[in-house]
């Protein structure tokens, strides 16, 4: 942060001000709090009340890019209103979060967007208290049942890690004709495929895999993204009180 402050020195500030239109300069004070600015719309030919209907229907992961479209877009993507609307529209997304242990005292967390199968590395979480110490050093394959109380079978995710440290995220798909679409297991997972296809009506699909090297998988969670900050804070209780 300190280093960044020095980057944003007075020299650059001067240049920025010249680039900002006069109209904006007058409103700078107000914009710094809310970014709201008359004239600059999300989509020029639409009122913002309608544009936000469109933004709320974009896949969550695209927000990382679209927030750079303009200041208005950035402010919108970070606004609680947008997430409220997504909730109303039922476009709230669920991401899968993984916490891995790279080495002693070094944990990395990752998020997977099951829709686009894109991984995101999350900020480091230095102060982690393990909920369950007995999990430490658990050998071999790990598996969590990701089902929450409100999640139906088509949203069931399971995260596995094999001996080669390869983590796979699997999703249970309700399937009308299980034989026609073979599960997408590859070599390293074959040995357990019988265990995973307990019911003929459910096909487990590998929706994403990732090699975390020697990192040990410590924690994983599927979580609905109902506000902007959710994408960065998979589980607040994990962050409390370092020992």
């Amino acid at each position: 942060m300190g280093a960044f402050f020095s980057l944003a020195g007075p020299k650059r500030m001067t240049i920025d001000y010249n680039k900002v239109s006069q109209n904006e300069t007058c409103k700078r004070q107000r914009m710094s709090s809310s970014f709201s600015e008359e004239g600059a719309r999300l989509i020029p030919s639409l009122p913002d009340e309608l544009s936000i209907q469109i933004v709320a229907r974009l896949p969550r992961i695209s927000y990382f890019n679209v927030k750079l479209v303009s200041r208005k877009w950035m402010a919108t993507v970070m606004s609680p209103e947008l997430y409220k609307l997504r909730k109303e529209l039922g476009t709230t997304e669920e991401w899968v979060y993984l916490l891995t242990k790279v080495e002693e005292d070094k944990l990395l967390s990752h998020a997977l967007d099951p829709l686009t199968r894109k991984w995101q590395r999350l900020p480091m979480m230095p102060n982690v208290v393990y909920e369950d110490e007995s999990r430490k050093g658990f050998p071999g394959r790990w598996m969590w049942n990701m089902a929450g109380p409100s999640i139906n079978i088509s949203e069931l995710h399971v995260i596995t890690k094999d001996a080669n440290h390869r983590v796979a995220v699997l999703r249970a798909d309700s399937c009308s004709s299980p034989s026609s679409s073979a599960p997408l297991f590859d070599g390293s997972l074959n040995e357990h495929s019988d265990l995973m296809t307990e019911s003929d009506a459910v096909v487990w699909r590998v929706i994403a895999t990732r090699d975390f090297g020697s990192a040990e998988l410590r924690y994983a969670k599927a979580q609905k993204i109902i506000k902007h900050s959710d994408a960065f804070m998979p589980k607040v209780s994990l962050l409390e009180k370092p020992q």
Binding site: I15, A40, L42, S45, S62, L68, S70, R71, K72
Partner: peptide, 18 residues
């Protein structure tokens, strides 16, 4: 996932970031 510039083209908007 398009870059911000693609989105700008689609919705016909210019960046207002310095």
């Amino acid at each position: 996932l398009p870059e911000e510039e693609d989105v700008r083209k689609t919705i016909n908007i210019k960046s207002d970031f310095p």
